[in-house]
Design a protein around this nucleic acid. Sequence first.
DNA 1: CGGAAGATTGATAACTCTCAAAAATAGTGG
DNA 2: CCACTATTTTTGAGAGTTATCAATCTTCCG
Lengths: 291, 291
Amino acid sequence: MLRYTGSTAIDYSSSPNCENVGTDAADVIIRPEFNRNQLSPFSVHARPCSTRQNPLVRKLEQFSRLEQGDIQSLDKLVASPKAMRAGQLLVHESSVLDEVYLIVQGMGCRYKLLPGGERQILGYLIPGDLCDIHFITLTKPDHSVALVSDSQVVKIPTQKLNALLANNPRIERALSLAALHDIAILREWLLNVGQRNALQKLSHFFCEMMLRLSRVGQVADDGSFELPINQMALADTTGLTPVHINRTLQRLRSDGLIRLGQRRLYIIDTTRLAAIAGFDDSYLQINQCRR
Amino acid sequence: MLRYTGSTAIDYSSSPNCENVGTDAADVIIRPEFNRNQLSPFSVHARPCSTRQNPLVRKLEQFSRLEQGDIQSLDKLVASPKAMRAGQLLVHESSVLDEVYLIVQGMGCRYKLLPGGERQILGYLIPGDLCDIHFITLTKPDHSVALVSDSQVVKIPTQKLNALLANNPRIERALSLAALHDIAILREWLLNVGQRNALQKLSHFFCEMMLRLSRVGQVADDGSFELPINQMALADTTGLTPVHINRTLQRLRSDGLIRLGQRRLYIIDTTRLAAIAGFDDSYLQINQCRR
DNA sequence: CGGAAGATTGATAACTCTCAAAAATAGTGG
DNA sequence: CCACTATTTTTGAGAGTTATCAATCTTCCG
């Protein structure tokens, strides 16, 4: 928790592209480059980007323009989802990675365990998310994936997916962008866990989930959404303790910021929560592919 | 910091591929799946994977077999590196991403800043690392990259790189795998920052750096290596405070585990340090591409 | 040599954790 | 639909890492 309070002059003029050799010490240059856009109450109340039923299409359309044919292929892929119960493992240490799971409805999470039993949740999978494109080229997973709620899931043989991608460059492109999106989230999580305090961590997580879920049409008109995550999981998400999560939640509640119960979260004051969290949605901004 | 201490029976038999519907509650299934291979003192004393001079070749060879032609192309790419000083920014918020940087010699880091000035370092770039393949498809970077030591750097126009990749599928494949490798490291960092204590965090970071650097021939015969990172940066890497880093370092030193000074780290007792860190190098394992 | 950056130290505060138990909720079977 | 159990949430008290603040010492570098 270091704050840069120095008054050293900042050399904004020296573009990183220029060749001139800096003489300042590392941190003088590194730290003050922060230059944030105003914290904006993120626009979660926007309608989902698409009204399509197929969550995969809905997701990929954000990243790359899809043609009719692409959509048909994707629809075929997602034709018959299976129901799976909360707690089911989709990927674990010794999984044979010849299949990829697609969350159609419900929620999953990725996590790592420590020998002592400590768990760090690495991310949540929401409708439209593939579990896990990162695995496709790996022979052995380095983390596990499980469902956190009863879900509808499609199992896609890796072979089939690869064939699809080979024939549909737009889909392939969209999927790589989706992977980059995941990484951007991961980076923000590292910042969240490493540098923010309990109140900020929780608030930030809530803001992120609301924005992500709103994009796949999972946020109700009243602004509430399902968050099938217990306090233990919230703890493992933020690197805190369940007890401390509980107390932090109480504070958020009594401050009139959220309502949480029956696996549903209602953010009463989006703007204020985002301010507390220091939430800046630019890391979730989706940049349509240029090519 | 939760420990799974329950004695609930573990259903190892239920493969994630099976369709049967679990009845257990989420955490019963999720937690106990931990089944680590023994903590092995990682084999850092292995010679670098290749004796080539070109660090990019040296790196990519780990991921995919390269042919003579590929190597020649890469050699041409890295022909004339430029010297840049510590502290120089390679990428910042408003960078125009028409160029990619390759670290040939030296070290860089990626980081994010908070409005209050808190900094979280997201990863280190070592010789052979591209800064940053993740940016290629983005229009605006979500984090910054700077050099932490005087370095030799190659600036590659994105266009040129794309052309190269289009003509050299093996290189392209190797680069995607390299990106997956980066992500695996990022995941482990999240675990590190979220769940381990100060001593473990530092130890783990040291183990990781030693292993990564040994693979690019940056670890001397006596096992020492350059680590041009001051205590402030170590703090921002681990989510701790410089003061606490200082005290933790003293402990590592007085316990006879490391020697650190003049920007050089010498790990005296690799095995013991790895044990303290709970270091398991499997997340750094490189899986040669199957295709 | 002299100034600046980095490392170290001491004392104190505080956020977060630990432990343990009670209350509330959800889930299951009769 | 109720009883019963397991899970989850909530509380309290106290301890402990880790943070904060500020000063000193050391090292680096022009």
